[in-house]
Design a protein around this nucleic acid. Structure first.
Length: 570
RNA sequence: GCCCCGGUAGCUCAGCUGGAUAGAGCAGAGGACUUCUAAGCCUAAGGUCGCAGGUUCGAAUCCUGCCCGGGGUACCA
């Protein structure tokens, strides 16, 4: 419908003024109409005419050209042209589907990226939620989406953790007996969370020793880091060190899987750094002298040539840094998927870093960097400005956020409903435009008043309740058969008709918050309708039922994109 | 220093490919209700859009400078 109107306006402009313009209709306030355009204002400058005169001339033309779709064309304000659809056209526009702009495309979406041997913090929860929503948008537009996850199963943080285990837990004794004892007494029968917490605790101890004036510890950790890479090179599963390593790694991945399952996302593949490192190392080495260069014993990319930073890709120990591993990662993704687009979602802090990596890749595989997009988001802070720092140990863990929401929900309703809690947290994260930091307020997120996930879930459940009370099931769009809509019905229909536009916009920008903003307006419109219009038992029951069903389905579809459940009862 | 990102109502945020009186929610004020889930609805109040210039018929939106906050800036990620 929208495209049809835009074409008609474009044609009218062409016919009257011999100017070619691409028209973009906007959604004005309801009092003005269903669609609006400011072409007349744009044209007035280049034609040197009064915008209102231009608008009037166009309006005459449009009334004729769009007689079937349009009930009214008006000119208002400085020269806006407002269009009001006929009820038939409005009903028709409810059938629209989101544009399949990505049909036939293979897209790799990488997000979450937790590191084994470390804790899942609030940022991982956020990035997982937002990544899931973006992947849903891509899939909704027809893309074949592969969700993948990247994480450091080798690297300094692993060395710190293992070092602390060896130093504090086994006291340097790595005999088979000691290892067996360690396994039984420390971790058997423990939950995944407990095991993960145990690893995280050792990571913190190792980090503390590494950063303090403990030269011995630092040297040992650096040496250990090298040995851990060697475990992979040698495919070592037997040495005491390797046993500790593989066990910790296995626990971490099991812990991640259970976490993702709980929050309702999933990945088809993990790319551990140990797999991308060799390829990255090789790729970087192959381009030393042309793309990368040696400097002070390390291999770097001179980003300053391009107005970026210079970064180390292979350190002076001969080990790949994150940069080289990322080079390997994109090569591996390419081997695996031959993607049309590779989308990586991470925090803002690595935005400059990623530019350097992509710029270096552009030098030898331009088709890979041009198909890559890096989307970034801010960090999660608790209301009150509490900041998290993984180094100081006062980190805000993913579970802390979820349990805070759970407690707030329990305090409010007397029960902790999982769908409500998750819906509350996800919506609180997603309603903000991606890029800035999130100030998370547990009470507000579950509060069910105002712009919250539970408000939307409730607005859905109310509609389902009406539908369940109807003696006959709702028919498809009964209101479309030339039956004039009453004001409240029309407002609801109008708002429902905006759904695909909201989805298209969110998809085009890869910004899920547009969906939130729209769904909230939709729910508000419905609640208003609900207050003023009886459905069951009313003489307009058939029309209203079909409208309510269309509304509930629309809201549910939108929430599904956000990864939020729509329970029928609350 | 240089490079990014942000600064909109008391609080949390939309709006930022320039256009109609700058929108929501929360908090605070008032109201209706014997009705399909009141976890709702209605009304009013609340703003130097960080500051100063510039471009434009028109700037929260674009440009320049400055102030404030955050991040990055060679072997962490």
């Amino acid at each position: 419908m929208k495209e049809k109107l835009e074409t008609a306006i474009s044609d009218a402009v062409q016919a009257l003024f011999a100017v070619h313009l691409t028209i973009e209709l906007t959604r004005p306030e309801e009092q003005f109409g269903d669609y609006a355009t400011n072409v007349a204002l744009q044209l007035s400058k280049q034609l040197g005419k009064n915008p209102r005169e231009i608008a009037e001339a166009l309006a005459v033309k449009l009334r004729e050209a769009l007689a079937e779709q349009i009930r009214e064309v008006t000119v208002a304000g400085p020269g806006f042209i407002n269009l009001i659809l006929s009820d038939e056209a409005l009903a028709q526009s409810l059938q629209a589907k989101p544009i399949q702009s990505l049909a036939g495309q293979t897209i790799v979406a990488e997000y979450s990226d937790p590191n084994p041997f470390k804790v899942l913090h609030a940022g991982h929860l956020y990035t997982s939620v937002v990544g899931d929503a973006i992947a849903n948008l891509l899939a909704g537009a027809g893309g074949t989406v592969h969700r993948v996850n990247f994480g450091g199963d080798v690297g300094l943080h692993v060395a710190k953790t293992i070092w602390a285990i060896l130093f504090y837990e086994t006291k340097g004794n790595t005999s088979d007996e000691e290892l067996a004892l360690l396994k039984t007494k420390t971790y058997r029968d423990k939950s995944l969370e407990t095991r993960a917490a145990w690893l995280a605790n050792n990571y913190m101890r190792g980090t503390a020793d590494y950063e303090e004036d403990n030269e011995d510890a630092k040297m040992q950790i650096v040496a250990l880091n090298k040995r851990i890479y060697q475990i992979h090179t040698d495919n070592d599963h037997d040495s005491p060190l390797a046993q500790i390593y593989w066990l910790g790694r296995e626990w971490s991945y099991a812990y991640f899987d259970s976490f993702y399952k709980h929050i309702g996302t999933s990945f088809e593949k993990y790319y551990p750094e140990s797999e991308t490192a060799p390829l990255g190392l090789q790729t970087v080495r192959d381009h030393v002298g042309t793309v990368y260069e040696e400097s002070n014993g390390a291999v770097i990319f001179d980003g300053e040539k391009y107005g970026l930073h210079t970064r180390v890709f292979i350190n002076s120990e001969g080990l790949p840094t994150y940069e080289a591993k990322d080079v390997g990662l994109i090569m591996k993704k390419w081997q695996d998927y031959h993607f049309d687009q590779s989308i990586v979602i991470t925090g803002n802090d690595i935005i400059e870093y990623m530019k350097v990596v992509l710029k270096s890749i552009e030098q030898f595989k331009p088709e890979l960097s041009s198909r890559s997009r890096h989307l970034t988001h801010g960090i999660v802070k608790l209301t009150g400005g509490t900041k998290m720092s993984s180094r100081k140990g006062n980190i805000l863990r993913a579970t802390d956020v979820l349990s805070a929401a759970h407690e707030a929900n329990q305090a409010l309703t007397g029960q902790g409903n999982q769908e409500t809690v998750l819906g509350a947290v996800k919506y609180a994260f997603l309603k903000n435009r991606m890029g800035g930091d999130i100030i998370y307020d547990p009470q507000e997120s579950v509060s069910l008043e105002g712009n919250s996930g539970p408000y939307l879930q409730y607005a859905h459940a109310r509609a389902r309740s009406i539908l369940s009370k109807a003696d006959a099931p709702a028919q498809d769009d009964t209101f479309s058969d030339k039956l004039a809509l009453e004001a409240g019905e029309r407002s609801l229909a109008r708002k429902i008709s905006e759904y695909t536009e909201a989805v298209d916009k969110a998809t085009a920008e890869l910004m899920p918050h547009h969906i939130c903003a729209y769904l909230y307006e939709l729910a508000q419109t419905f609640n208003r309708f609900y207050e003023h219009n009886r459905v069951i038992g009313d003489e307009r029951q058939a029309v209203r039922l079909s409208l309510v069903r269309r509304y509930a389905d629309t809201l549910k579809a939108g929430l599904a994109i956000l990864g939020i459940a729509s329970p029928n009862k609350m």
